[in-house]
Amino acid sequence: MQNTQKPRVLISNDDGIKSGYMLALANALVPIAEVYVFAPEEEQSGVSHAFTVRRGLSVKKVNLGRDCSSVEAYSMSGTPADCVKFALGHFASHGLSTEGAGPGPFDVCFSGVNQGENSGVSSLYSGTVAGAREAALWGVPGIALSLHGVTPNMLEFAKVFAERVVQNRLFEKIPAGVFWNVNFPKATAETFRGFREARMALGMFTDHYSHEGGLWQLDGDKLWEKQSEDSDDYLLHQGYATITPHRIDQTDEKSLEVINKMLAGNG
């Protein structure tokens, strides 16, 4: 029998609860999903997978406006990982009490839509990607959505992609322990070249620091064209939207063999 119940969707981000891009995503999903938002009260870009311990977190209910009147939204004083961790680990079961009932399990978690790319090594630093990773840790399909360029066309493509994922239940194709990192290029509707599956690029930033007023300021960029042609950095720079599957398990199997021989005194 076909499942006719609307999917229950969690949305978070690292740009904060006031992000218009996150609001646009929530608004797009309202007709086809039961939407909840948990987002940081302030911008949390670059915090990676940091979360809060040894101090309390505040959670405040937020009105996202008339277009999202059916969305239950909350701001939190913590990081994106905090937001997803609380929503999945507590709110889903207990709501905002310690013994009450929550809405129930979430079917998918979107993190974004982020302003700025999170491809390649950017994904390691990204609070947006950490939101999707945290969902995967809880067994919930996680999808990070990021825009390389701030263009209305690409925001529309990101919304349509998310709608398709929810409407066709494509999130069910994400295996346990895996999450998707999706990046949209600097492109117009005319120059957008479509979607490509992609590996994570490994090229590092061209980091450099300037010293002004007694402070060190970080700047840098990526060597986009020097990355592998099947990588997210390279393809994103060619005008493609990239879908990169990431794994929770970061174990390097070959190194296990080396370590095993070392411990056995054979290496």
Score class of each variant (00 low, 15 high):
Met76Phe: 04
Ala101Arg: 10
Thr151Ala: 01
Asn118Trp: 00
Phe171Pro: 01
Pro80Thr: 00
Leu96Asn: 10
Leu137Ile: 11
Pro175Val: 13
Leu155Tyr: 12
Gly142Tyr: 07
Leu88Ile: 05
Ile174Trp: 07
Asn114Ala: 13
Val150Ala: 10
Val160Ser: 09
Arg164Val: 12
Lys159Trp: 07
Ala135His: 11
Glu99Lys: 14
Trp138His: 08
Arg133Ala: 06
Val113Gln: 08
Glu134Asn: 12
Ser93Arg: 12
Lys173Val: 08
Pro152Leu: 06
Leu155Trp: 05
Phe157Gly: 02
Glu156Ala: 15
His94Trp: 02
Leu170Asn: 12
Met76Val: 04
Pro80Trp: 00
Phe179Gly: 04
Ala135Asp: 07
Gly104Ala: 01
Phe179Ile: 01
Ser97Met: 04
Cys83Phe: 06
Leu147Pro: 09
Leu155Gln: 11
Gly102Leu: 03
Glu156Gly: 12
Gly131Lys: 03
Val140Ala: 08
Asn118Gln: 14
Val129Pro: 00
Gly139Ser: 14
Ala158Ile: 00
Pro152His: 14
Glu117Met: 14
Ser75Lys: 03
Leu145Gln: 06
Asn118Ile: 13
Ser69Met: 03
Arg164Ile: 01
Pro141Thr: 04
Ser93Gln: 13
Asn181Gly: 03
Ser70Lys: 15
Gly104Asn: 13
Ser70Cys: 07
Cys68His: 05
Gly102Met: 03
Leu170His: 11
Val150His: 15
Ser126Gly: 02
Phe91Met: 04
Ile143Glu: 15
Ile143Thr: 02
Val150Arg: 15
Pro152Tyr: 12
Leu88Trp: 08
Phe171Tyr: 02
Val84Gly: 06
Trp180Ile: 01
Ala162Ser: 09
Ile174Lys: 08
Ser122Phe: 10
Asp107Val: 07
Phe91Val: 09
Val178Ala: 10
Val166Leu: 06
His148Glu: 15
Gly177Phe: 09
Ala135Val: 06
Asp82Glu: 03
Leu124Lys: 14
Leu137Asp: 08
Gly116Ala: 14
Ala135Gly: 06
Ala144Arg: 01
Leu88Pro: 05
Ala144Trp: 04
Met154Tyr: 12
Gln115Ser: 12
Leu145Asp: 08
Asp67Thr: 11
Ser70Pro: 08
Pro141Trp: 05
Ser119Arg: 01
Tyr74Phe: 13
Phe86Trp: 05
His90Leu: 12
Gly102Val: 03
Ala101Tyr: 13
His148Pro: 02
Phe171His: 14
Leu145Cys: 11
